[in-house]
Each structure stands twice: as structure tokens, then as C-alpha cells.
Design a protein around this nucleic acid. Structure first.
Lengths: 210, 210, 210, 210
DNA sequence: CATGAATGAGGCTTCATTCAT
DNA sequence: CATGAATGAAGCCTCATTCAT
């Protein structure tokens, strides 16, 4: 969409910019996005306020940059070694999501928050989310096509709901301190619920040889 | 719960207060909580700024009041006529949630938002949420006890996840304008996924065949 | 200056007014004049804010009323039984001042304070003060005339200074909690310093010469 | 005394800060402390309101700074050339006080005023005052020891009273426009009253020369 | 590029005063 | 007369943004 000029930065500039991004994430996590003032970021980064504006237009722009990085980590492409087994693929996706969320819980929650008042950020989020859902949807569609899952639910709708289940679980579990579940049990349970919800034939049997 | 003096309000006071609550909800929905200034609420209510402070300490306090009302509507006790059938009960609960959310989508989303920066509000939310989850958990526990659902998942964990699925679906579907699903189909699909996830014996009746 | 109408008050009115004066003095003493809001006075008096304005135009007006009462007490006419002895008269005046100040220290200090921003109040104060000083001045003048005190100081100036000494001593000693002197010793010392400052022949008696 | 970071100010900052102090003193003197709004100070200084907060937390903090300066001037150490003669020393102290007060009458009165509602400021004042009184007390104690003054008064009490006489005289004479005395005559009279009050032997001899 | 002081619009809150009941 | 809710002017303070050094 955007035709940005690549703007090559000098070495020094690169460093200052990086310092700001790191500092921002730190103070965002510590005090929340809204509560963070530009001065706080600058102070944490050890640079002057003015320098902030050399690289970013606003807190929001900086946050978007942070967010983009996070989303990539949250929904990585499934690694090749996972293999074709549906349950394994579902589990792998869930594990990646749960683990990544757990790791970046605080900042992800804050980003999520900001999503409501920052349309651009929301765009980023929905893009990431849509990609994830699309993958799930394709998966369900295939299962249905292959007769491994009943066709009584809309793949798109089911994808939304199941993906949402995972996301919401992470958001409430890791985002606040209020509940405390074991991540690995969570992954396993999520996967069980998910596969059963799709009425997936359990172990798509083994080829049965004569 | 609170130990405050109840202070019975005069007729006029009652009216002014109500005007403020109504107005606040309106402007919150229109412009968002953060973007709303006290003056906006007062103006919308047709009263002076000072009057706001006669009844509320802050925007947040007012929002909490709005939130409390909403949560009650979101998770009502299941009406007696629903009967004992698990699927029917699950469907009724889902329908109530979906319908209530749909109806108050915008303000619920905003409240949800505020939840992150207002601990008291979050308390209210988590209380409501916990009650809902507890109900689901009890239900799962009973199903497992009666042999209607396998015991391979923790009732508590599953309750969290399934309740979360419903909530998150509503939040994303109704909270923003980005996706557009038919509510009734959604209720049906949610219920299907939910019951299957619990591996609920479809028609529990006895069928009995000779 | 003002030709006030006597305005006869009804019984009820009289009572409400009195309640306000009493309440005002109480809250003034407790929280300071500036810190006291009209509501506070009304609340303390157990009447509605509106009623305050039925009797007073402002806090200041009320305070002036309180002040006037206090000043009368502070500088009462010397009682007849004191007799003509200069030292005894000086001591009596000092004792009255010290005792009255001690008794009403807090409110006197506050009034004193208000004196700076309320010209009318200052008028009251200076009137009272001037009367006191005038009495002292007359006394010094007489002593000088009778040869009992050297004429090397202006009676007016000395009166100012000596009266001021007494006042300031009370103001600092009783107005704040910082110093703590015995009132009776103070009266005695003030009197000693005062009489010596005027180089008053110690025991004026002596009379009779053979 | 304070454990704050010293923060060395840049040249420009120094200048702005000074402009604010000067301006503040000016408007305080003109309109009174309470009547002065932050905007007034900023406007007088020719800077923006925000700049005020770069250097001070509040009007009060600024006033304290002004006060501290004044107190130093009010009670300077006696210069060496005064010599050891008690009367001369007393006179020198009185003259310094009277002259400094006269010079800064208005602002000193205002500061004095603020003293009542600002505990920190009062602390400053009492510290300065205590130092002055302590000096007087030491002096009286020595005179008594050397038999130059009778021991029938407590040095501490007398010090309080005599110092108070000087202060109060200045406060009333210079603080308001109501009385009008010649400063030099005042110094002389104060000194006379003071020395006589201590029953100081007039010209501590010197005489005798064959 | 970096710096950080200066700017000032904008929101919050208080409370003396009014006035309809 | 009493009541107390309503009013809104007025001051406070923050902080994103600019710009001279």
C-alpha cells in the first residue's frame, strides 16, 4: 500500500532509532502505552526528546513497528517437519501461538488495547489475524473435502471461532495475572477441543495393511 | 458490598443523574471513552459541567456503572423453560451471550477496552466472566460425572476455553465492523463446536433398538 | 461608614444566623479561613448553603463579625480596681492581652492572617490596635509629664513599640505551637521590660519628705 | 541539606528561571501572592505557562526561594567594625533589621502572610527568626554574666520579646501604609527601649584618663 | 543529526453564587 | 425563610510538538 522511500540511515542514526524502539517497548511494558510519555521513551533510550521526532511521528507509529514484529512471531508459518497429520498441524499451530503469546504477553495485551483507538494498528492486527484464520479455514475446508470432518459447519465460521478460542485463551491467561494454567496442558487441551469440535477422525488410522 | 452512605437522591437529582448516564453512554459509543471529555457528556445531557461532579468522581466511575448493567444482561441466569438437555442449555447460554453482545456491541467493546487501564472496571469484568465460566465448568463436570463427556480434559480449562471462544467471537464479530456473520448461524455453529469439543453423545436419549 | 438598617430578625432567623457564626468559627479554627468553603460552614451549622447567603454576603463578612468580638475581649478597658500605680496598670493591660490571646490564639492568628487580604477587616484591626496604642501613649505622656519617665523618646513611637512587643510575643507564642512559655512569667517579664524601657522610677511612692 | 540531583542548568535555562523569579516577585508585590495566577507570572516574565513548570512545582515553591533570599538580608551577621560595645551592637542589629525591612517591606509582609498556610515556608521563617533570637539571647546572657544587666529576666524570654518588638514594629510600620515614622528615629528609640529594658549601664565607663 | 528548553492548546476540577421548589 | 441542585467562570497542570543552538 505504501510506497516508502527506503531512506538509508547512517550508522549513528540506525543506533539511535534502535535505542528508541527498545526503550519504547520497555516503558510500554512497564507503564502501559497511554501512560507513557514521549519524554519517558527518550529518557529510557538516553536520547533527547527531539530525537524521537527524527525517527517517528508519534508513539503510535513506534508501537505499530513493535506490533508488526510481534505478529510475525505469533503466527509463523508451520515448519516443514510438522508433517501432514491434521492433529499434529493443529497442535503445532496452537503451541506456536501459546508460546509466543506467553513470551510477549504484556506487550501483546497492550498492543491489543491500542488496537481500539488506532485504526492503522488495528489494520495490522486484523491482517495478521486474517492470515491465521485463513490458514485454519483452508485446513478445515480440506478436511471436509477429504471426508475427515463433517460439512455441517461453515469452514470460515468455524475457523474464526476456533482461532478465537486460542487467542482469547492466551489473552486472558497471559495478559493478566488472574488465571494460571500450565501452557503445555493448555496446548494439549486446546488441540483436543479443536479436533473434537471438527469431529476429526482421531488417528486418521494407519493405512491398514492386509 | 460497599459501605458508603446511601444518600437518597431527590427527584430532580435522580433525573439529572440519569440524564448523565444516558448521555455518557451515547457519547462513549459515538466517540470512544478516551476521546470523550467531561464537557461532552455534560453538553449531551444538557447540564453544566459542575453537575457531572455532583454525581460522579470521574468518567471512569460513570463507565463502571454502565458496565455493571451490561454484564448482567450479558450473562443472565438460564430461564427455567430451557429444560435439562445439555445441548439446549449450551445453545441457550450462547444465544443469550451472542444476542446481548450484538445489541450492545459498541459499548461493550469500549468497556472491554477500558478494562486495561482501570483496575476496578477489570474487577467487575472478571467477576462477571468468572461467574459465567463457573457455570460452564459445573456443567462440564456434571457431564463428565454422568459419563456423557470424556474425562480427558480439565473442566476448568475447557470451560475457560469454550467460554472464551464465544466471547472472542462476539468481540471480533460485533465489536468491529470487519466481519459479518449471521448471528443465528453463529449460535448454531458455536453450539455444535462446543458440544462436539466435549464429545457430547449427540442425542442422549435412549433410542433403544430391539 | 454604613448606615445599616437594624433589620429585626425573627426568632428562627436569629437562631440560624447564630448557628452559622458558631459553626464558622469552629471550622475556621479547624481548617483555616481560606481552606474553609461555604459548604463546610453550612454543613457544620446543619443548614443549607443557601441559608448562608440569607445572612452573609461572604465568608469575609462573617469573619469580620467574629473578629470584632475578639478585639473587644483582647483590649478591654482597665477595671477600676487596678488603681493608679503605673506598673500595676501596665501589668494589668499586659495580663489581659496575654490571657485573651492565649484563649483565642488560633482564631486570632487566622483573623490576623485575613487582615492582609481584607481591607475592611484590617480596618477593624487597626482601629482596635490604635485604641490600645493610644491608651499606652497617653500613659507614657503622663509619666513623662510627671517626671516619672525620661522625655528622650516619643510617646507615640514608644507606645507603638511596646504594644507591639506584647502583641508579637503573643502572636508567635500562642499562634503557633513552636515556643512554649509560661504565661504568668511572660506577663511579669513583659511588664519588667516595659517599665524599664520607660525607665520608670521603680516604686513611685516614697512621698513624705521630712 | 537536600538530597536532590543538582541538575546544572544551561545558560538559557538559567536566564528563563531568573526571569521567572524576578517576575514573580514583581507581581506578588503588586497583587499579592494569592491573587497572582501562574499565568500572570509567566506573562510578566514573557514566557509561556509551561515554562513555569519547568522550573517550579508551584507558586509556593517559588515564593520560598524568594523568602530565603530575603531572610538572609534581614538578619545579616554583624560586621566586624561594629566593635564590642553592647549598645552599639544592639543598635547595629536593629538598624540592619529596620533598613532591610523597610527596603523589602511589601514582599516581606506577603511572605509573612503565606507563612500561615505554607508549613515549609513557616519553617524557613522560624529558622531565620530563631537564629536572630538566639543571637540576642547569647548577648543578654553575656551581659548578665558580666553584671551589666540584672538577672531578673530569662534571657530567652527577653530575647524573644525584644526581637519581637523590633520585628512587629517593622511589620506594622512598613508593611502597611498606615503609620509613618522616621526610620532613623525608630532605630534610635528601639535601641533606647531595648537597652533600658535590659537596664544596661549606659556608657560602659570608658572615662578615666589622668 | 542531537539537544532540550519553550510553547500553549486543552482537559480537569473546584466552589461561590443563584434560584426554583 | 429554608433547601440543595445547578451553574459556569476561573485556575491549574500536562505534555505533544517545535525549533534555535
Amino acid at each position: 500500500m505504501s510506497t516508502e522511500a527506503p531512506k538509508p540511515l547512517t550508522r549513528r542514526a540506525e543506533r539511535t532509532r534502535a535505542k528508541l524502539v527498545t526503550a519504547a517497548r520497555k516503558v510500554f511494558e512497564k507503564h502501559g502505552v497511554l501512560e507513557t510519555r514521549i519524554v519517558d521513551i527518550a529518557k529510557e533510550a538516553g536520547v533527547a526528546v527531539g530525537s524521537f521526532y527524527t525517527y517517528f511521528e508519534s508513539k503510535e507509529e513506534l508501537l505499530r513497528e513493535v506490533a508488526a514484529t510481534l505478529y510475525v512471531e505469533l503466527i509463523p508459518p508451520l515448519p516443514a517437519e510438522v508433517g501432514p497429520d491434521p492433529r499434529a498441524r493443529i497442535e503445532a499451530g496452537n503451541r506456536a501461538y501459546v508460546r509466543a503469546y506467553e513470551k510477549n504477553a504484556r506487550i501483546l495485551t497492550l498492543v491489543q488495547h491500542q488496537t481500539l483507538s488506532d485504526a492503522t494498528l488495528r489494520g495490522l492486527y486484523e491482517e495478521a489475524r486474517a492470515a491465521f484464520i485463513a490458514r485454519v479455514e483452508r485446513s478445515i475446508r480440506r478436511l471436509q473435502r477429504e471426508g475427515l470432518s463433517p460439512k455441517d459447519v461453515s469452514p470460515r465460521l468455524a475457523a474464526h471461532m476456533l482461532a478465537g478460542m486460542v487467542h482469547e485463551f492466551c489473552y486472558t491467561t497471559f495478559g493478566f495475572g488472574t488465571v494460571d494454567f500450565d501452557p503445555e496442558e493448555a496446548v494439549s487441551t486446546l488441540t483436543t477441543l479443536w479436533t473434537r469440535a471438527l469431529a476429526l477422525k482421531p488417528e486418521t488410522k494407519k493405512k491398514s495393511k492386509p
